[in-house]
Design a protein around this nucleic acid. Structure first.
Lengths: 228, 228
DNA sequence: AACATTTGTTAGGTAAGTCTAACTTTTATA
DNA sequence: TATAAAAGTTAGACTTACCTAACAAATGTT
């Protein structure tokens, strides 16, 4: 059985592996910063987790979850996101209040509790932030993402990824204050040239080209919040 | 903010004060046994709790919660019993499974969570074991208890206390396998002499006198379990 | 009242998780 | 490529909550 602290290290490692998705390794300082401890402390814990075969780790090397470590981390993430969903859906917490409490609830030990909670919530696939909730077997639901250009007039969607990763495009996004999670409402589609009029968050209307609309992945999921 | 462990000591002290209701003090060994630690450990913690003015305690003396300590203990008990009710009512846990998980859940820190949970559950007054759930202000709901002799035919009730505390009566109860929490169904009332035919738990029918029926306090509450 | 038993305390030690300060290795840059 | 900066490690110390073993006080019994 893992301690509360060990669980937090595993979860942090999993999160970092999502962030740097191409190479899912992490560094000691990165870990420490994420957990709010000093690097020396993280080093100690990493040795301990290596002993338990939850991480691959060598002196001065990069840190990687083992398969076993990843499964355990996914289980914790599963609990975290199910509890967030519970707080949001059933207890009327706002999307920005759920995280702090879920940080505590995710450490409750009871397999039955997690499964019953999932059932009670109607087997949700995404939490209130739009993040996928791992299934009991560790599978992660995939966001159904489409291009902004496919969205109908009047619909609201959320940015989930970029198709074009060129610097000019990313800089343009930054100028428009669009990041992952930003809400976009399609006000009008111009059939003539494929351009559209959109509303970004709660800003005023703005026109974007077909090229733009075909470079941005969005989702229509409704259990996602306005900000992130 | 109290640690998980400190909270457990306060809760244990509160429980002991309910048990020895006439004098709500406890001893070091008693405490230690209740918490599954050695007396020496309990002594250390009691000094610490005294420093925080949560208990009144003197060397070799009896232990008593201060007003502040009692309020904090009641808050923990409130959380424990609300979570038990949640698990029982909403997640289909059985009455004997709820305690273990509630022991963990009671330590979650969030005033909003407790109040929202209470609302979500419909402001229950008693937990699945029939124990009163402290209100946010520390008030304890009182069980509506009546004498067994007042119960109508066909009704099911649960034993909550004895009116007669004589040894012969208590020994008789023991022989009938009646303890606090035992379920009793009134099968027939004989007006002639005030005696009644009752069913104890799932045993066969049995006749008891008016004197007996007037010596046992019961409750008709329905959110109470069969056993305790 | 004297002694035995129960009850409670003290002293010293352990493991987990944290820290600071000094040191080593890796990496980035002039 | 030499050196400075960044990243990571080690050693030693602190706190919390626990332990054992030895001791002290309170209680019960003849």
């Amino acid at each position: 059985m893992l301690s509360y602290t060990e669980e937090n290290y595993l979860k942090a490692l999993l999160k970092l592996s999502f962030q740097n998705e191409d190479k899912p390794e992490a560094g000691t300082n990165e870990m420490a910063a994420h957990l709010g401890v000093k690097p020396a402390t993280a080093t100690d814990m990493l040795k301990k987790l290596k002993e338990k075969e939850l991480v691959n780790y060598k002196k001065y090397g990069k840190i990687l979850l083992t398969e076993s470590g990843k499964q355990q981390a996914l289980e914790i993430l599963r609990k975290h996101r199910l509890w967030e969903t519970f707080l949001y859906d059933k207890l009327d917490f706002s999307w920005d209040e759920v995280h702090e409490v879920a940080e505590q609830l995710e450490h409750i030990q009871s397999a039955k509790l997690v499964d019953k909670l999932e059932e009670f919530l109607g087997f949700p696939e995404f939490d209130p932030h739009g993040d996928p909730i791992p299934k009991a077997n560790g599978d992660l639901p995939v966001l159904e993402k489409i291009l902004l250009s496919e969205v109908k007039e009047g619909e609201i969607c959320q940015v989930v990824a970029v198709k074009d990763t060129s610097t000019v495009f990313l800089q343009y996004l930054e100028k428009l204050q669009i990041t992952i999670g930003t809400a976009i409402k399609v006000l009008e589609r111009i059939d003539f040239d494929g351009s559209m009029s959109i509303q970004i968050s709660d800003e005023e209307a703005r026109n974007v080209s077909m090229k733009f609309a075909e470079s941005l992945f969005i989702t229509l999921h409704h259990n996602i919040c306005q900000q992130k």
